[in-house]
Amino acid sequence: MSAVVITVTSGKGGVGKTTATANISTALAAMGKKVVAIDADIGLRNLDVVMGLENRIVYNLVDVVEGTCRLRQAMIKDKYLPELYLIPAAQSRDKTALTPGDMIELTNQMREDFDYILIDSPAGIEQGFKNAIAPADRVLIVTTPEVSAVRDADRIIGLIEAEGKYSSDLVVNRVRVDLVRRGDMLSTEDVVDVLAISLIGVVPDDESIIISTNQGRPAVLQNGSLAGQAFRDIAARLTGQTVPFMELDGHDSFMKRLSKLFKL
């Protein structure tokens, strides 16, 4: 077994990197994969909160790198899934506490024991981003259908290509079908058109994400959540399955289909 290291990044902050990391990691683990999620956002840790593991943190990523603890001690077992682990970020330090080499070494130590290692990158293009991207085999670029987020995603893709890495996929997050239909929001096609990389998922704007984030229980664990379904589809595509893209245009009919499904 040799894990695939997937870094989730965006450039712009607040577009849903952490939500995407938590949900995709959880979805992969729910498929029976062995998964580690690493929060590389040193100083502004969040992934533990979204996964509901905040009060179990004893050691963190920086402790491992500095040798304060063993790797296994910093790995927090998930509440819901047995094969999912989190390595939290340090909160009292900053991005300079790590180097890209540290991240490569750390992920190499885990590759043998896991199927997927997901890294939640901090926003920006500085040291923290470079740390997060260094060990990546694949990169997921998260953007929202807003011009500013797309600009930043474009810049990030350029920087990743300059590192000699070409396996980037695009996640368009928080799509609002009503706004797209009125022509008030960029459509997914517009975004893909500008960024010219392959699309791996379209996630609708969904209030279940806010609720699940506050509860610390990723939306993929809830059956009725449209965004959760979208993240499950992304996880399936990462494992090589072909999954058709959700019919976001037929929002109502999809909900009806979904509710029909559960009545059966």
């Binding site: 600009r151 930043d152 474009d154 810049r155 893709i157 350029g158 920087l159 500008v194 010219a196």
Partner: peptide
Amino acid sequence: RSGQVVEFPGNVVVIGDVNP
């Protein structure tokens, strides 16, 4: 892509987009 600069003393031909 954004942030990328091509500087060349001669002619430049791009097959692809030049993004903002």
